[in-house]
Write a protein that binds this DNA or RNA. Structure first.
Lengths: 147, 147
DNA sequence: CAACTAATTTAGAATTATTCTAAAAAATAT
DNA sequence: ATATTTTTTAGAATAATTCTAAATTAGTTG
């Protein structure tokens, strides 16, 4: 079996596993998202990528699909940057570096940060998730003392 | 001196301290934000509140002012909810509870969470800030076993 | 397979939050 | 006061996202 076929099979199986019909669009998007290393994408990005690969899919469907995948637990939505959401194909426990002023995002493995002394969730609620975002800025290159 | 006068004085002094001209709009918004306990507001919320108190100010000015206050370090911008930003009058070290599906946000005192084993910032960058968001969901009232 | 039903996709309009623009108003300096 | 600079503003513009209703497609069922 070719790699392409394997990726198709995997995508189809992934959809089946979460109970989503394997439509042409969902299969194509699943392949873009899950064949290869983990990634962070915005809806616009994924849509552009699909079009470039000649996958005909509307932006509305990309949004629908990203949300369905998120509900199904095979994507995780990240709210980090005002004005846009990112979706992370890595749904295991981990946190993020975010490069302020850019669009870049990098995973920190789950073991790489430890959150201690979590306060109890308020009455009537429970913890759905804990997000840690380490916001980075460029470090000043200090060649000479500033005036 | 009346409380009102004291609040005006405090607002004026706050602006002076960060080098922003004490215009009518900025003074009014500073009073709304800083007279009283700490709070989390969106631009729309603050604008609505100002109008209700008969402070004539445009939404554009509210946005400008929130950003100026943030740059000046007297507000902190929170990106938590896709599609809108909140501004926090508490700029000391602390983290947040967020009630998913709502718009509610609550401070966790800085000492209430401890982040350990922070990985080093990637080459050429430094940590600007660490945000911890504890996302909450309603806990199911389990009166009877679910089917 | 043919006909049917339900789910999905889509184009485009609509909505929402936010930013931009250029002109008028207000604050400070001279 | 007058001049200069900053700020405010209405309204247009932009950007991300959601909605809508119609057309298409997937999964049955006879």
């Amino acid at each position: 079996m070719t790699d392409k076929q394997k990726a198709s099979e995997a995508a189809r199986e992934r959809l089946r596993a979460v109970g989503l019909r394997p439509t042409r669009q969902r299969l194509a998007l699943a392949k873009l998202l899950f064949a290869g290393p983990h990634r962070h994408v915005s809806a616009e990005q994924l849509h552009g990528e699909a079009l470039r690969k000649k996958v005909r899919v509307s932006l509305a469907t990309v949004y629908n699909t990203l949300h369905q995948f998120t509900e199904a637990g095979i994507l995780r939505e990240l709210v980090i940057d005002p004005g846009r959401s990112y979706f992370d194909t890595n749904v295991t426990h981990h946190h993020h570096f975010f490069f302020e002023g850019s669009t870049r995002l990098r995973d920190i493995p789950g073991e790489g940060v430890e959150v201690k002394r979590l306060p109890a969730a308020p009455e009537g609620t429970e913890v759905a998730r804990v997000d840690v975002i380490i916001r980075l800025k460029d470090s000043p290159k200090r060649r000479k003392r500033s005036s």
